[in-house]
């Protein structure tokens, strides 16, 4: 037999306080995006990339004004100087200050990269979205068309377009956008098609939500993640393509500079031993490619709730 437990009335007290307090949500709600940001911040490599991007953008804006030279100013007495206190990155074969030119090049390269990504984004989202929402025959035709164009390699197509267009910044962006939007369109289409079949979209439709509501409240926020990742990864592709074009002599015309033209100009100088002329734009291109790729990868991981610890 177990021991008897003696209970008397003074062992009990009425519970104090409000029961509703226990159910209260004490911490602020963590929205999806703040959660993403939290996860992104924990990824050291991705944060390095992100900070690098910010630094590069800042230097592209202010860099050309820092040491008082212009990107086109030539000084034939000071040709091929090694980096020194006056010319921090040295000078090129026409006596132009490479520090200013490098950051002016950053401006053009980054501008081309960002603009190409933005145009790809706009066309891609429109094309892919329409294709997926229309569905059926329209979808079939639109996607077949995209697939056929996509069979031509991106860079080959850009080079072909640059043969037709005059050299310059705008033509480069146009040439890149002509096929560049296709991966984005395919991505958006796939995402929307997948979402369309989800229960919560059906639930919203049944509850009386119209198309624009579903688009605004469900489709766009839920497709935003992969689109953003794709956008981040488009920038380095575009910068790389621009560098390649400039390297082939199809890039921005002479007094202007991009990282591609700087590397291309420096190619002859390595035989003379002025390797630094090539090294500086090379490092800048590589750093940018690295930063955007790493940040894009980190973003991809951060956006995936399945990877949450």
């Amino acid at each position: 037999m177990a021991d008897k437990v003696h209970l008397n009335e003074d062992m009990f007290q009425p519970a104090e306080g409000n029961f509703k307090e226990a159910e209260k949500i004490a911490r602020p709600t963590v929205s999806y995006w703040s959660d993403v940001w939290r996860r992104f911040k924990e990824n050291k490599l991705a944060m390095t990339g992100f900070i690098l991007i910010i630094l590069l953008v800042l230097m592209a804006i202010f860099g050309p004004y820092i040491n008082g030279y212009t990107y086109y100013g030539q000084d034939f007495d000071k040709k091929n100087l090694s980096p020194n206190s006056e010319h921090w990155f040295g000078t090129d074969s026409s006596g132009r200050d490479l520090f200013t030119r490098a950051w002016y090049g950053a401006r053009i390269s980054l501008f081309i990269g960002l603009m190409a990504a933005l145009i790809d984004f706009l066309i891609g989202v429109l094309y892919g979205g329409i294709s997926a929402i229309r569905g059926g025959r329209t979808d079939n035709i639109m996607m077949r068309f995209a697939e056929v164009i996509y069979a031509i390699p991106y860079l080959l197509m850009v080079i072909l377009m640059m043969v037709v267009l005059k050299p310059g910044i705008l033509p480069i962006i146009i040439a890149m956008s002509i096929t560049g939007w296709i991966p984005m369109a395919r991505l958006v289409r796939g995402q929307v098609l997948q979402l369309k079949e989800n229960e919560y979209i059906h639930a919203a439709t049944i509850s009386g939500a119209n198309t624009s509501w579903t688009l605004r409240k469900h489709m766009i926020p839920n497709t935003m993640g992969p689109i953003l990742v794709n956008l981040t990864l488009t920038v380095p592709t575009a910068i790389f393509a621009e560098a390649t074009l400039s390297f082939l002599g199809l890039g921005v015309p002479a007094p202007q500079a991009s990282w591609g033209t700087l590397t291309s100009d420096a190619l002859g100088s390595i035989l003379v031993g002025n390797f630094y002329q090539l090294l500086i734009p090379a490092i800048l291109i590589s750093l940018t490619m690295f930063a955007f790729n790493v940040a894009g990868d980190g973003l991809q991981d951060a956006l995936d709730p399945k990877l949450r610890k």
């Binding site: 790389f240 560098a243 390649t244 390297f247 590397t263 190619l267 390595i270 390797f275 090539l278 090379a282 291109i285 590589s286 750093l287 490619m289 690295f290 790729n293 790493v294």
Partner: peptide
């Protein structure tokens, strides 16, 4: 992997030549 993805082939080529 990072070097391969970040360094464009023409830069790699010139560095290798150098």
């Amino acid at each position: 992997a990072i070097v391969g993805i970040s360094v464009p082939n023409f830069i790699l080529a010139t560095i290798l030549i150098n």
